[in-house]
Amino acid sequence: MGARFILEHISALDANGKDVVDLGCGNGVLSLKLKKTFPQARITAVDESYMATASAKNNFEINQLPDSDCQFITNNCLDGFGVESQDLVVCNPPFHQQQAVTDHIAWQMFCDAKHVLRSQGELMVIGNRHLGYDKKLARLFGKHNVKRVASNAKFVILQATK
């Protein structure tokens, strides 16, 4: 449900010709939308699961999208990515790890995103309203660098600028 909501707002980004990471890509639905909306974007779909990155790559093939300027990487968040190497990170972080509700994975994703973003780079995050990502992002990026893009009864989409 969160992915469906953020899909409605992908077109508000400025990603054409930019280096874009779909962090925690799952089946690649956000990567697909990004590539369809911004054909000149260089997409990197990242997930900790080999099955997820294989699924994302397969979905590009099924949708007949060119993936010559796309990468599908199985990785622990953004470990090994260069400092200030990306323009945009889009993220729908998990907040469950088995039965535990936690935000430690999201926090690592946010910290890693800040590390790899270039100056004026952006992180777009979707999360359940009750998770308080706005406060966490404000602590990391600065209060004036975080804005609400959209919200509904269940979710909030936030954009943090480095």
Rank of each mutant, 00 (worst) to 15 (best):
K33M: 14
I6M: 10
R129Q: 10
H130W: 06
K162F: 00
H9Q: 13
R4N: 12
E122C: 14
V156N: 08
R118N: 08
F95C: 02
R42L: 09
V29N: 10
Q108N: 10
D19L: 09
L158F: 04
A106R: 02
Q40R: 12
V116G: 00
K143S: 12
A113S: 15
F5A: 04
F72A: 03
G142M: 15
E48C: 13
G127H: 13
D112T: 09
E84N: 14
I105P: 02
Q98M: 06
L65G: 06
Q97P: 00
A113M: 09
K147R: 14
Q108A: 13
G80R: 14
K57E: 07
T102E: 08
G26I: 15
G28A: 13
A41G: 01
S68P: 01
M1T: 13
G82W: 06
T102Y: 04
D22P: 00
M109Y: 13
N16R: 03
A153R: 11
V101M: 11
H115L: 12
T37L: 07
N58G: 05
V29E: 02
E122V: 15
K57S: 04
A150G: 06
Q71R: 15
T44E: 05
S119L: 10
A12H: 08
H144V: 11
Q97Y: 10
L137G: 01
D87E: 10
N92G: 03
K154L: 03
G17P: 04
V90W: 01
Q97H: 12
T53H: 03
T44R: 06
I105A: 09
Q71L: 15
D47S: 11
I126F: 03
L88H: 01
K162Y: 01
G142K: 15
F110G: 01
G26E: 13
V83M: 07
V46N: 01
V20H: 03
R118M: 13
I157L: 09
C25Y: 02
G127C: 14
V29T: 11
L117Y: 05
G26M: 15
F110N: 02
G121D: 00
S119A: 13
T102K: 09
N58E: 15
L131K: 06
A54C: 07
A45C: 10
